[in-house]
């Protein structure tokens, strides 16, 4: 039961990550690979605050999210000034550089990771309590993003992604909209980080490598980029499939490459046969969401 609940919590955390990444890349059209580092900022900041201060946990999570937001604004404000393509390169540098910094600083625990984050909830109810909190946060995230992209704001985002020049010439401040979308998406990733730190009580830099953004992107593509519930489907599938395989009791020498092969094949199959993702055609009309 404990095992299944932990998977449930992980799925909820990845739903939050995938949904926020989808907001940035699928709706906003902002190409970035730095999502794991904002996840990391949220985790480290809230973890460190929990260790060194007596702030209530929700406050430390919010501070962590605020820090992720601030860092994302610094990155986007400088990179987007040049161009949208530049954001991709700058985000890669930001992701790699900051993670190196985390690995080499003393107070973050260095490459060994940050341990000793206090248990805020103790007793047998701990795991179920976290499962409920994580699930509620995931649901709130998905529905908040859905509400955002459905109304007049979503219409503006779509127009901006379709034809930025014409959009700006109508009097819309595309730059500030991009900054806001980016900051919100990255701030949400920071919340996921805080949740992660408090549940696992241990944060290691290896969990925030740049490859994580490939995993999150796979969830988004598989589920349906630019759809509200696509990231949910993607996160559930990509986390549940490997767990299901473990029940086959295959030897580890086959298991590890199997997972990689399955993910790669899934992405390829989807990009060829259903580029809009599983939830892609559920909408009433075709919308070309993506990195254009």
């Amino acid at each position: 039961m404990e095992y299944l609940s932990t998977i449930g919590i992980l799925i909820a955390i990845y739903v939050i990550l995938a949904a926020s990444y989808n907001l940035v890349i699928g709706y906003g059209g902002l190409a970035t690979v730095a999502h794991p580092i904002f996840f990391a900022i949220g985790a480290y900041v809230s973890g460190l605050l929990a260790i060194h201060t007596s702030l209530p946990p929700p406050v430390t999570v919010l501070v962590g999210a605020a820090c992720a937001m601030l860092a994302s604004l610094l990155l986007a404000a400088s990179a987007l000034r040049v161009s949208g393509d530049y954001l991709l390169i700058a985000s890669l540098g930001f992701q790699l550089g900051l993670l190196q910094l985390i690995k080499n600083l003393e107070f973050t625990g260095g490459p060994g990771g940050l341990g000793g984050i206090p248990a805020t909830i103790v007793g047998p109810a701990r795991t179920p309590a976290y499962l409920v909190i994580a699930a509620l946060l995931a649901i709130a995230t998905v529905f908040a993003i859905r509400a955002l992209v459905r109304g007049p704001y979503g219409r503006a985002i779509t127009a901006m992604r379709d034809e930025e020049l014409a959009f700006t010439a109508l009097g819309r401040n595309a730059m500030s909209m991009k900054l806001v979308i980016f900051a919100i998406g990255c701030g949400i990733a920071g919340v996921a980080g805080g949740l992660y730190a408090f549940y696992f009580q241990y944060v290691s830099p290896d969990q925030f490598e740049v490859l994580q953004s490939a995993a999150i992107l796979t969830m988004v593509v598989l589920g349906g980029m630019g759809t509200a519930f696509g990231p949910v489907v993607g996160a559930v599938l990509l986390l549940a499939i490997p767990q299901a395989i473990t029940f086959l009791q295959l030897p580890p020498s086959i298991m590890a490459p199997m997972q990689g092969i399955i993910f790669t094949v899934l992405v390829l199959v989807f990009l060829f046969l259903r580029p809009a993702g599983i939830m892609g055609h559920a909408g009433r009309r075709r919308r070309t969401a993506g990195l254009t």
Binding site: R155, T158, A159, E163, A166, F167, L170, T288
Partner: peptide
Amino acid sequence: LFRSMTVMENLLV
């Protein structure tokens, strides 16, 4: 024009 949007949506932004 905003290609993935309807006529009305094009005007509303």
